[in-house]
Nucleic acid binder design. Sequence first.
DNA 1: AACGCAAGCAACCGCCCGGCG
DNA 2: CCGCCGGGCGGTTGCTTGCGT
Length: 274
Amino acid sequence: MGRSPCCEKAHTNKGAWTKEEDQRLINYIRAHGEGCWRSLPKAAGLSRCGKSCRLRWINYLRPDLKRGNFTEEEDELIIKLHSLLGNKWSVIAGRLPGRTDNEIKNYWNTHIKRKLISRGIDPQTHRPLNATTAVTATTTTTKNINMDFTNVDQKQPNIMIATSSSYDETKCNSGTTEETKPLEIVIPKVPSQVMINLELSIGLPLHSDHVSSPESTASYNFLTTVVPPPTAVVPAAETMAKTVCLCWQIGYQGGGGGNWCGKCKNTNGFYRYC
DNA sequence: AACGCAAGCAACCGCCCGGCG
DNA sequence: CCGCCGGGCGGTTGCTTGCGT
């Protein structure tokens, strides 16, 4: 719509990158660092779109990339983060060192979706598959957590915890809070080296009457616990409870701010959930 | 051995957003 | 305040590979 193309397409290569192109890109970035992607291809002697160079570097050539198969711990972490953030692949990738948003997105679409479906969980809503429709009708106790990650780079995230009587799935992902009156909790500034630890807890309803039980009450320890609304049918709930604890609290990594459920174990830097 | 199908993944496309003049 | 530009992101495409028949 009148928008100028990001590069002169007529003279740019497309498709798979050759080893020579990779090497040129690596050499250039080693020498000059990541800079203006638009001008980089020309300066590096590449007939590629700047965006293409950026993507190639970020997703494939970066030296700190882990590559290789995802571990079970990474799987569960991705699932948890996705249940909170939706398709915010870059934010999720930020919590998985050595992994890229593209890689996680692909992995989600090819592996985890299927894994969740086999567990009887809707990959989009993270709720039991055949209870999805019932869920939309039962919204009275839903707490809608909107996380504003726009300031993550500045280490100054704003966590918006909104209580709303009409929980809309689509708004959860977008982070839009226009129609809710959010209870805003602003996390104070933290040192730039401190990573934000997005630990949170999601309790899965095992009984239809759990709402009134003390265990099901959201525990607010600096942040909240998300308790999905009760559902009439909870197939595979037992399976899920065994697989994922989802006891997850927000704090600062290394700062002692976050706490895992006592049953969760930390193994090699990854948490194994109870 | 050849073919067809499905899965996996790299790369592209187009939109959005923030910074800057 | 407004428009432009560049970077970043999510969604999608299409090529490659692996597997079954």
